Computed example of a mutant assay.
Amino acid sequence: MSPLPATPDTPPVSAPESAAEERSARLAVTLFPLLILAGGAVAVLTPGTFTGMGPWINPLLGIIMFGMGLTLTAPDFALIAKRPVPVVIGVVAQFMIMPILGWLIAAALGLPPALAAGVILVGCCPGGTASNVVAYLAKGDVALSVAMTSVSTLLAPLLTPVLALWLAGQYMPVDAGSMAFSIVQIVLLPVLLGLAVRRFLPSLVARCLPVLPWLSVGAITLVVVAVVSGSAGIIFSAGLLVLVAVILHNGLGYALGYGAARLFRLPTASRRTTAIEVGMQNSGLAAGLARQYLTPEAALPGAIFSIWHNVSGAVLAAYWRRRDARSATATPASPASSQHI
């Protein structure tokens, strides 16, 4: 299996096949939110130190998406032709469930317009490939996870601006055309460039792969620092409300994603993967777009989501693994041995 791709939500991690690789994947999922949480805390305490970082957000996101392209291979896309149904179910659920959930949560909590638009924009973005590592740890279908993330990422230049205009546009103006062009620049072109470099310079890319996790971690930490430093004031006044919105958005995304897969009778591994793909978002992209096209405050939900969904994903994966372990020790006749979520 090819390495798991890198996005603003996780460093690239090769599909783990040994105990050492599994420990590495767990470390990535655990350490990454701690690093960006530390960066965010520093930005809150000394916001003036980082006020000049705003223009660097989009280039940093482009670098990370280039890293994603470097880690993708032809088999990742071949799965789409071999097993189109679960891929389509996951991608449709991604772009239906999360945007509408964001809109409903913003309305239910009575969020201010900028924060409401930011929550909705997180829901309109494609899946983040932290989901690929979490799908592995949860004993999900990793190949399906990579395929879903790749397809949703490639569809983002079209669907993200349209959905944002429809839902977030109720709270503040959204320039969908300019946003689409930015997503092409930030996401699509870097991914395609990475794919081309991997295709024509595979030996060079193989030597660079070990460095990509640290590049991605550093880049997304800087993105979060830039976003938080521009929103330090609102963090103290509405930070708890935003956290509640993020937790609801992420958790309900898991539940409804799993339910959608179960409705179509996908196997357990695919249900887990779909839940993770729907619940985990490319929130770094959301933060960057919000800061550029909405307001600095609107970028705050994306920054907080970047931290939270890594934590919740690791917890969900641990729960499923423990459940499987209990099922494995049950007798064959026990219901627990044949039924689990």
Rank of each mutant, 00 (worst) to 15 (best):
I64Q: 03
A299I: 10
R291N: 09
T73W: 03
T30S: 13
G284I: 00
I235V: 15
A28Y: 00
W214V: 04
T10V: 06
L316H: 04
A138E: 02
F77H: 09
P335Q: 12
L285H: 11
V244Q: 14
L256I: 10
L154G: 05
V311C: 13
L222C: 13
P335T: 07
R326F: 10
Q339F: 11
A325N: 15
R23A: 15
M68T: 02
G233T: 07
P8W: 01
D175W: 02
C208P: 02
G102V: 04
Y171L: 09
L155I: 10
G123L: 11
A143V: 00
V223C: 11
F32D: 00
I57Q: 06
L165K: 12
V205T: 13
G62A: 15
R272I: 00
P75Q: 09
S231D: 05
P12Y: 01
L121G: 01
F236M: 15
V211R: 04
G52W: 15
T295K: 08
I307E: 07
S24A: 14
V191G: 08
R83E: 15
S178V: 07
P47H: 12
S2T: 10
Q339D: 14
I276L: 11
G123P: 08
T274G: 09
L294E: 04
L45H: 12
A238D: 11
V184C: 14
N250C: 06
S18I: 00
L252F: 15
R198Q: 14
G302K: 08
H340M: 09
P112E: 13
T295N: 08
A107C: 12
F77C: 12
E277N: 07
G140R: 04
A138W: 06
G48N: 09
I220W: 02
A108H: 09
T160Q: 04
G230S: 13
G118I: 03
P99I: 02
W320K: 05
P55A: 15
L256S: 03
L27V: 06
V146M: 11
G54E: 11
W320N: 05
L215I: 08
R198Y: 06
A15Q: 09
I63M: 14
I235R: 05
V87N: 09
L163A: 12
L212I: 01
H309F: 11
L61M: 10
A78T: 10
V223P: 04
L109Y: 06
G251K: 00
P113T: 01
A25W: 02
S2H: 06
R198S: 04
W308H: 06
T268R: 15
S152I: 05
Y293T: 08
L243A: 14
L37T: 14
S306Y: 05
L111G: 08
I304D: 04
S182A: 12
V244I: 13
A135K: 03
E21D: 15
P99K: 11
L188G: 10
